[in-house]
Design a protein around this nucleic acid. Structure first.
Lengths: 317, 317
DNA sequence: AAATGCAATGATAGCGCTGTCATTATCGCT
DNA sequence: AGCGATAATGACAGCGCTATCATTGCATTT
């Protein structure tokens, strides 16, 4: 029983006779033997690692995406290495560098807004990269996501259709996806001839429920006659709902409130939150599948997959 | 310039003359060279990986813990491999097996309730293990956390001190920490001569805000005269607050509500939520430090670190 | 000038696997 | 019986690093 046979017994069980295979597994169990991935990676030139870069885990949106990714890769024997860049392109570059040392077979990154140097690192690595969340129909760029702008546009149009005319937009974090939502909002109100710059509140701070309340206060100071607010995410919107409760503002009669993402909680708030349901789990699943295909050298039917979004019209608007 | 010198230039920069070091780094940049961790791990017998096992990431408690862990290990050159076991000891064992193949230098696990077979695997691996969240003052077992029972007891006593006499306990998930909280509650109400079994609602379902509302409904059906509810976590409690809003139940006048964990949002709810603040981030940091010491072969002053908890008395109770 | 110590650099082997090619055993067919 | 095809197993080199020990160069001491 040579070492190579043991290796085969683990990697291609049906290439080894049943008798031998059993004995090998028995022995492995008795000895507590575990295959060493480092050695395996070195010899085979396939690390079976894939690196995943997300901006944050506090934001449960990315937790969902990562869950989808994990599910796919786990069943294919790949190990996911997850890095959090805190919405910071410098940290992102450090992560890419760190993960390249694992010789990943592919990489999944959030968005397209990395530095030029990061792009070069990724290029040099010569491994397939799939982008998540945003879309870009560029030659050689793979992406799975949905149009942030179209989603924001749909929500703004929904608010318009409900008769609101003084619609505000409130955002924090200001990452590229947030800014795309801002554009979707702005384009739509401009087209309707209703754009007023003092109804936009944009701050770079990290999103939180508490911040939602604070930003609503600020908005109502600078634009007290606002009749609807579109928040760039559900966390802020939920904070605003609480602030309304506190101040006795009737939602949606006095002020309509809308969010973005459809967090599980948004269905239970009082009033329930009108929002955009985003296919974040499915993005993870599809991006992982696309990456798998690329790793195996297959060509993929489309290099861009738009998974769309859904407007959830609830009580708050 | 031999290969070993290049290796040294990266690992022990001051063992190489400045001139040579600069040339090496320059060349590495030009060529896009990245050290291969697999080879490094194989040769040095130190993977610089540490495995971290948590039950869930949807629960932001563990996201905080992982953030603390990451922060420590990142600055020490270790890579964190994170696995999610979904509160399932079978999955946990699979994860341990999978991560052992990375030859981690140490492991951080949540709680003590793993299977016997898992324990054997960990033993055989011969690497230091630090347990998080719960405490156990056993020989050779390392843990960083706080007493779940004491915390639940403190909350129950708080509710008693506020004059409540018909105090209910509602929990889902039923992992060992939840059950410990249940014991803390039960012991305290028994001691006060106020235990009534129909005021306990325990379900195995995954926690969520929506479930909190549903469980409150169930509780009020089977024990309508309840005057205070202690939920095993803030998610459930928040759902209950919404349910109260919906049904016009005055909190805390008609019904006091308490949670556990002090999620960021709990400060902003209406009314704000009385809860237990848990040192989850700090648990991550301290557990990581303890593991680092053990990996470096140092002895640690205490094999159990109790980081305590804080009662946050707010409006809801 | 010789001896000593230390810093800087190099040569070599081997970590635990797997790619590749070689060998042996087994079976069905003419 | 002889042949070829296929399945099962093995030998061996080498993946990219680092542990270890050896060597060189140079400053300091006697």
């Amino acid at each position: 029983m040579s070492t190579i046979t043991v290796s085969r017994a683990f990697r291609w069980p049906d290439k080894v006779s049943e008798d031998l295979r059993k004995r090998i597994h028995q022995a492995a169990d008795d000895l507590g033997y575990v295959r060493n991935r480092a050695a395996s990676a070195l010899a085979s030139n396939r690390s079976m690692n894939i690196a995943v870069l997300v901006p944050s885990l506090s934001n449960s949106v990315f937790v969902d995406t990562v869950t989808g990714i994990e599910k796919v890769f786990r069943t294919h024997g790949y190990q996911m290495l997850m890095g959090v860049n805190h919405y910071n392109s410098e940290e992102e570059e450090a992560l890419v560098r760190a993960y390249l040392a694992f010789a990943p077979d592919g990489m999944l990154v959030t968005g397209f807004n990395y530095r030029e140097a990061t792009r070069q690192l990724l290029d040099q690595a010569g491994i397939p990269i799939v982008h998540m969340m945003e879309l870009a129909d560029r030659e050689g760029a793979y992406s799975v996501g949905f149009s942030q702008e179209a989603a924001a546009q749909a929500m703004t149009e929904h608010l318009l259709s409900k008769g609101h005319r003084r619609i505000a937009f409130v955002a924090s974090q200001l990452d590229p996806r947030t800014l795309a939502r801002n554009r979707g909002y702005r384009d739509t109100v401009i087209k309707a001839g209703l754009y007023e710059s003092h109804r936009e509140v944009l701050v770079p701070d990290q999103s939180s429920v508490a911040l939602g309340g604070a930003l609503l206060r600020r908005l109502l100071e600078q634009a007290p006659d606002t009749d609807a607010v579109f928040f760039c995410n559900d966390d802020l919107a939920q904070g605003a709902l609480f602030e309304c409760l506190r101040r006795g503002i009737q939602v949606p009669e006095q002020l309509a409130v809308a969010g973005f993402n459809d967090l599980p909680m948004s269905e239970c708030t009082v009033p329930s939150l009108t929002t955009i349901a985003t296919p974040r789990y499915e993005i993870g699943v599809q991006a992982a599948h696309m990456l798998l295909s690329l790793i195996e050298g297959q060509t993929v039917p489309r290099n861009m997959i738009d998974l769309g979004f859904q407007l959830r019209a609830r009580e708050s608007a």
